[in-house]
Structures are given as C-alpha cells and as structure tokens.
Amino acid sequence: MGILKWSRSKSPWLIHFNTGGCNGCDIELLAALTPKYDVERFGIVLEGSPRHADVMAVTGPVTRQVRKRLRRIYDQMPEPKFVVAIGSCALTGAPFGDCYNVLGGTEKQIPVDVYVPGCPPRPEAIIDGIAKLLGKMESSDDDDGE
C-alpha cells in the first residue's frame, strides 16, 4: 500500500446529507460521532463544507425536490470521493419508495460505495460500514480511488 493510499484511508472526512428522511438515521449517525463511539480514533471528522469532505453520508429516501441539491452537493466534493448510504430509505426508498414525490434510493442518483441497512442502523453498524469503506479504499487497485 502506497503512502498516498495510506493517508487517504487514515483520514476520511465526512459530510452528512439528509435527502428527506425521518431524522431517525441522522440521530444514529450523530450518536456515532459522540464521545461514546469516538470515530476520531480512525481520523474521521465531520466537516460542514462539501469542499473539505471525502465521504458523503446520505440518509433518507431521495425526494423529487432534493434530487438537484443532492447532485450539486456531490459535484462540489473534490475527487476522490465516496458515498455511504445509511438506512433502508437511502438504500431503496423503503416504505416511501412508492410515494408520488419519492424517486427511490440514493444509488439511482449518485454512485454509492457502501450500503448500511437498518431502520435505523445502530451507530456500531454505521462505523462498521465506514470501516468497510476504508478497507475498500485500501484494497482498490487503481490509484484514483473510484
């Protein structure tokens, strides 16, 4: 593993984006960032601006209204960038999948690297998902991370 890939897998900075969920997954994600779980151990920091972030944590089903915003925030992140879909809604749309204003899961709009199922997933599951993403970063062969 080269030093560039090492640095990338040791310092994933998160940006959190709710695409129209019920706030359940958001609370679990915030719980994962609290002192009890302390993800700063792995170098994970929550950033406010998409320009600073490497990993986008998406929660909730993608609604018609938020689709453009999701795409724009994703485009604002510098390469190499990764997406983690958190919760059943972000995976498929779950109970809201058939609503007139819901377009389904995150993967239909932007490429997703890791899926974390659950309604809502526990903080341990979210940390496990991000750890899987780090493992994926380390083992990927091409050097631009995509």
Binding site: W6, S7, K10, S11, D38, G43
Partner: peptide, 21 residues
C-alpha cells in the same frame, strides 16, 4: 474520548495523514 488512535503510534501521524490526503 481517545482522539486519533490508529494512525501511527497513538495517532501521532494523524495531522500528517490529513495533510497528505
């Protein structure tokens, strides 16, 4: 909390890893 822990011994390389990334 523990703070940076797994990047080098006790996470001492964390700022360097951030910079390099």
């Amino acid at each position: 909390r523990y703070g940076p822990l797994h990047t080098g011994p006790s996470g001492i390389l964390q700022p360097f890893a951030d910079f390099l990334k």
